[in-house]
């Protein structure tokens, strides 16, 4: 007997709660990430208000780390903006993938769900939309998942800010940003081609560090993408659930 043949009796609040509960395993990954972000951003001299506001306004973990690292290196703000935009471009994929499911909702719902559309919320939400085609209140489920992540991200950022003031400055903690990136990169390299893209982008980045304005990151990223596309034989799919999950925190 399949689940979808059951009578639909779930209310809005229970859909919301189930969405929040579904994110629990992912919150375990997001919370330390937020903690480290808050501590490091405070450590490089950003004001606590700005560190917290960035978590609320940008709400995209890996971009926030890159912004912090580039600010520490006194990168021109325009280059930081460009780099952060490229890193967050993936959200267009999620937007395109989730759009058909919520096309019937009003503007407020669409606006709110778009704000909450992180990697994890997307992965949890799109899974639910595909597996429960007949369930009502699926947007409440997505909202529950999104808000659970949002609250975790804000709270762990705040805890990280407190931690940032407690940690001594001479512990080379800037290196923890690099370690965070390593923890994100290693699981994302899942086939030969993505490994080669990582190697090419990394080597290029080392070779072009002399470029002015810290533009090396952009150049190396573009070189990596071009190499990847040139050798790519896979058909791109319309669902990015696995990709979003493998990306890890936000």
């Amino acid at each position: 007997m399949s689940l979808s043949s059951e009578p639909i009796r779930s209310s809005r609040s229970s859909a919301f709660l189930r969405g929040a509960v579904a994110t629990l395993p992912l919150l375990v990954g997001a919370a330390p990430f937020g903690l480290v972000y808050g501590a490091l951003a405070t450590g490089v001299g950003l004001s606590p208000a700005l560190v917290q506001a960035m978590s609320a306004i940008v709400f995209a973990g890996s971009a926030q780390f890159v912004i912090v690292q580039m600010l520490e290196q006194s990168t021109p703000l325009l280059v930081i903006l460009l780099t952060a935009t490229i890193i967050n471009l993936r959200h267009v994929l999620y937007s395109a993938s989730i759009a058909p499911f919520i096309v019937h909702l009003g503007h407020r719902w669409k606006g709110g769900l778009a704000y909450l559309l992180t990697d994890e919320a997307y992965a949890i939400g799109v899974t639910h939309y595909q597996r429960q085609p007949e369930a009502l209140y699926r947007h409440w489920y997505l909202a529950g998942a999104g808000l659970a992540l949002w609250s975790t991200w804000q709270a762990s950022t705040a805890a990280g800010i407190v931690l940032g003031y407690a940690l001594p400055a001479d512990w080379s903690l800037d290196f923890a940003i690099v370690l965070t990136f390593i923890a994100l990169l290693v699981p994302a390299v899942r086939d030969r081609l993505s490994g080669e893209v990582a190697l090419v982008a990394g080597l290029t980045a080392v070779l072009v560090t002399a470029l002015p304005l810290n533009l090396g990151l952009l150049v190396a990223t573009l070189v990596g993408i071009v190499v990847g596309m040139s050798f790519d034989r896979k058909q791109p799919s319309a669902c990015f659930r696995d990709q979003a999950l493998e990306r890890g925190p936000l």
Partner: peptide, 29 residues
């Protein structure tokens, strides 16, 4: 509809960006 070329390119963004951030922090020429 999202153009095919964009979908193909975006697949490699995370790996390329992260690696380009990590490598210069570990190795200097």
């Amino acid at each position: 509809e999202l153009p095919l070329v964009v979908r193909r390119a975006l697949r490699f963004v995370p790996v390329a960006v992260l690696s380009a951030m990590i490598a210069p922090a570990l190795v200097h020429l």
